[in-house]
Amino acid sequence: MFRRLPDADGSSVEVTIDGRSTRVRAGDTVAAALLSAGVLASRISDVSGAPRAPYCMMGVCFECLVTVDGVGNRQGCLMPVKPGMRIDTQHGKREVGR
């Protein structure tokens, strides 16, 4: 669980997270946006089905793999949010065709 420091107000952009329309801070990465929106698990392990969340935030661990605008296996911590972005938590492996 994370909260925003009062310093960090500023403009926001609208994205959808698992189909829900959500306003997130402009300039955040997808992974930071998920954490700030209270999304607990960014992906579900394709091995055991256990929930996983961003762990390193620097492009190393691949726990923040999400589907962005229909493309799976994107590293959420390396992608800045964009207006209208469709972010979907990833359940298991990347699916054929997305």
Binding site: D28, A53, C56
Partner: peptide, 25 residues
């Protein structure tokens, strides 16, 4: 260490530096 809510100290620091996010709770 794979549970959501567990992350590296660097990850916490990155969230602070790049997004002004700090742990709550």
């Amino acid at each position: 260490w794979t549970l959501p809510g567990v992350m590296t100290a660097s990850a916490g620091q990155i969230l602070l530096k790049s997004s002004g996010l700090v742990p709550d709770g």
